[in-house]
Amino acid sequence: MAYIGIIGGSGLYDLMPESTKKVIETPFGNPSDAVEIGEVNGVEVAFLPRHGKKHTIPPHKVNYRANIWALHELGVERIIGLNAVGSLREDYKPGEIVIPDQYIDFTKRRDLTFYDGPQVYHISEADPFCPEMNSILYDTARNLKIPVHNSGTYITIEGPRFSTRAESKMFRQFADIIGMTLVPEVSLAGELALCYSVIASITDYDVWSTKPVDAREVMNIMKQNDHKVRDILFNALPLIKKERKCSCSLRLDNAKM
C-alpha cells in the first residue's frame, strides 16, 4: 500500500514508467484525474496530477478536497506537493528550489475545509508543514548539490491571473515565493492529520522585479527544475519511513468543538 502521495504541479504530469490507475469517488466530487500507483526507487507511491494529465484544470478550479480525500482513501499518510512558484526575493533565484515552512492565504473563493458542519474542527496551522519530511527533502537536495532554501513563506493567490506590480511589491514585504496552488491543499491535508511538505521550484522573478524573464526562459527553467525535482524525489523517498515521528498525526487532537 502506498503511504506516500505525490501531487504533481505545472510541468510534471508523469512520474513513473509503469503504474496502475485507480479512479476514486469521493464525497466532494471527482479528483483532478485517476490516481497512479507505482514505484519510485523501490518505494510505492500514489501520484495525482493536480491540474489533470493534460493541464486542463486552472488553479482556482482544482477540486482540492477531492484530491486530498482520494489519497487519504488509498491509505496515504504523507503527501509531497510539487509547485512552480515565482520569487519575491532577489536571493531566491530562478532555477532554485525552496522547501517552504510557512504560508499566507490570499485566496478568495475556494472550499477551504472538510468540516462544513455539523462537525466543526479548528486545527492549528502554526507550523503547517511536516518538519520531518522538510528536513529530508532539504538535506537530499543539498547532498545532490541542488541550490535549495530550507525555509520560506509561500503566499497563495487566487489566480488564474498573475499579480499586478503593486500587489507583488506588497506581497514581498511578507513572503518569499508566490504561487496559486498551495492553499487549501496544505490545510486540507492537516484536517486529515496527514504529513505535508512541498518542493517549490522557482521559475521566475515575480513582477516586482525590473528584470522579469520571458516565457521562453520560464519554460527552459521549468524543464531544468523538472529534472531537479525528480532527482530529489528519487533519492528522498526511500528515507521517508512509514512510521511518523512528527506531530502531524496529532492535528485533530483537541480541535473538535
Rank of each mutant, 00 (worst) to 15 (best):
K223F: 07
R230V: 08
L252H: 09
E217D: 14
L239S: 05
V229A: 00
H227I: 15
H227V: 15
E217N: 03
L250C: 08
K211P: 03
R230W: 08
D204K: 00
F234G: 11
R230H: 12
E243T: 15
K228A: 13
R244C: 15
R230K: 15
V229F: 05
W208S: 01
R251T: 01
L233D: 03
E217K: 13
Q224L: 13
S249N: 08
M219T: 09
L233A: 08
Q224F: 07
S249E: 03
S247Q: 10
Y205W: 11
K223R: 15
W208E: 00
D231K: 13
H227M: 14
C248Q: 02
A236W: 06
L239Y: 06
T203Q: 06
S249V: 03
E217S: 09
S209I: 13
K223Q: 12
D226T: 13
D226W: 01
R230P: 07
K242D: 11
R230M: 09
K245G: 01
R244T: 06
I240S: 04
R251A: 07
I232E: 03
A236N: 11
L239Q: 10
D226P: 06
R244D: 14
V213P: 00
N235Q: 11
V218S: 05
Q224R: 07
M219V: 03
N235E: 13
K241M: 10
P238V: 06
L252Q: 08
T203G: 09
A215S: 14
C248P: 04
D226V: 01
L239V: 05
Q224T: 00
E243M: 07
L233F: 00
N225I: 00
I232G: 05
H227W: 14
K245R: 14
L252S: 12
M219E: 10
T210R: 13
V213L: 15
I232P: 00
N220G: 13
L252R: 09
V218G: 01
K211I: 10
I221F: 10
C248V: 12
Y205L: 08
S209Q: 04
L239A: 09
P238N: 07
D204R: 01
V218I: 13
L239R: 09
K241L: 09
P212K: 01
C248S: 00
K242I: 05
T210L: 12
R230D: 08
L250Q: 13
R216V: 12
S209T: 15
R230I: 07
E243N: 14
K211C: 13
I221E: 04
L237M: 02
C248T: 02
V213K: 12
I221R: 04
C248E: 05
R251S: 11
K241E: 08
V218W: 06
K245W: 14
N235K: 04
W208H: 02
R244H: 13
R216K: 15
M219K: 09
L233H: 05
D231V: 01
S247D: 14
A236F: 07
V229P: 02
D204Y: 02
D214R: 02
D206I: 04
V207Y: 12
A236H: 00
P238T: 06
I221P: 01
L233M: 10
V207W: 11
A236Q: 12
D231I: 04
V229Q: 09
P212R: 04
D204W: 01
V229G: 00
L233W: 10
P212W: 12
K211R: 15
